[in-house]
Design a protein around this nucleic acid. Structure first.
Lengths: 250, 250
DNA sequence: CGGCTTCTTGATCTCGATCAATCAGCGTGG
DNA sequence: CCACGCTGATTGATCGAGATCAAGAAGCCG
């Protein structure tokens, strides 16, 4: 078991990287590199691949494990008392799934694959006890959750007062950052979720998302189906941060 | 130090109570009863009372302690790159302040008193080590943060798609639940924050808050300055949950 | 090729921000 | 004690962003 000790510095490294990320974005910062995923592998077990629309776990199911995305992507949505589904998160490779189930020992939303997806399962009980590796791991999660708590709070509250174009720009900036952190191009990526999913996530109608994409098309981004290319990164960032042409400026 | 072991079951008790709280609300569930606050006292030190507008800590200051509110109330706000302040939280007696500073070791927002307020300081380093009390305490926080993570995510995302009256109704339902949990009346309470603060928090203009209160006045609530009384609790709940008269129903 | 879902574009209407003015509360000082 | 001024709260009028309704267009898969 002592062979895992090399994980520790890596955990800190992730943390440091997150700290230096000043992007005002929707980014969920619980991210591992492929290398780190290999290191943690001893705690995990590989699950069979999910195909599109297949469910990883259902809302309300007892929390037993969380998961790390190896490839593909997923969405998490919660069924509201009113009957609608609210998408609360998207997951990309390297990101943690199910952390919000720790709290009351049930998954608070259903997670389904947006495309063919593979995940690693991390049984939660393997994170109990006082083994140094595990202690460090929990510590890592502790910090990460605190960060995300604030992230979420500030950014989503921020979105409350923002126009639809700012919301969408923030979304793409966040996605860009997440791809970049995984070593992919921050300028050109494919998102497996539908326009409807994006709209649901951001609190916008599908039509609005579509119209905004058309508007962005001219200057900021090139869109082709679910492939996105950021043409004017700075411009998009300025828009997301509210420095751009916004309602009631000058 | 072993005298603190009686704390452990209490921590679990809090957790159980939070679990059973099914309110769809903005509630931040990190709450202690006065009794529990006494138990934890050994970890804390009393700070001198803050008067209105006095700052507990500034955004960006190094994270050293968090705090538990003993009496009064506070607000937390973050200065955005654009220069505006976004209120991210209100704190009532029994609630934890500063948890979101753990992540990157800095307070992500400034916290100021809304009225004369007393808090207990809990130096973070007293929560390190493997002493059973401290382990249990961290565990408690771990669970609480996970819960709050989801809470925040779902509810604020929910608010994104909600009309102003639903947002405000949710706000009062959450406040009501928080007062109730502390043993106060859930129907009649005083909120020290201004209309502007509420609007900022919910992403609404002051004028909108004011107008909504006038509208609520007729049926749902009685308002007098910063004293609020809920007249039709069920009605307010239905409105908050989206079952009420809403845009595009019938 | 049909039959689906997803995406786009157009037209209308409503909610809530904004601008503007008045009013109420309240501590200060004459 | 009351006049004054300041801040916060209310109310009215206007306007624009975005939801909604409606209809096509484009993929996508059997």
């Amino acid at each position: 078991m002592t062979t895992h000790s090399r994980v520790l510095p890596l955990a800190r490294q992730t943390q440091a990287r997150c700290q230096s990320c000043g992007l005002s974005s929707l980014c969920t910062p619980l991210t591992l590199t492929f290398q780190e995923m290999e290191q943690f592998r001893s705690l995990t077990r590989q699950a069979p691949p999910l195909h599109k629309r297949q469910v990883l776990f259902q809302q309300g199911a007892p929390f037993t494990s969380f998961f790390i995305v190896r490839s593909g992507s997923l969405k998490q949505s919660s069924r509201l008392p009113s009957g609608e589904d609210q998408i609360t998160q998207f997951f990309l490779p390297g990101e943690w799934v199910g952390l919000d189930g720790i709290g009351d020992q049930r998954y608070p939303g259903s997670v389904v694959a947006l495309e063919t997806t593979t995940v690693c399962e991390v049984p939660f009980q393997r994170l109990e006890g006082d083994h140094p590796l595990v202690v460090e791991m929990r510590n890592h999660l502790f910090h990460a959750m605190s960060r995300e708590m604030h992230h979420e709070r500030m950014l989503v509250r921020l979105l409350l007062r923002r126009t639809s174009d700012v919301r969408l720009a923030s979304f793409f900036m966040a996605m860009s950052a997440r791809f970049q952190r995984r070593g992919y191009s921050p300028y050109c990526f494919r998102l497996a979720m539908s326009r409807g999913d994006i709209g649901n996530y951001l609190g916008l109608a599908v039509e609005t998302v579509s119209r905004l994409l058309s508007r962005f098309q001219q200057q900021l981004m090139a869109t082709r189906g679910r492939e996105f290319q950021i043409l004017d990164f700075e411009g998009l960032r300025r828009l997301a941060e509210g420095e751009g042409r916004q309602a009631a400026h000058g």
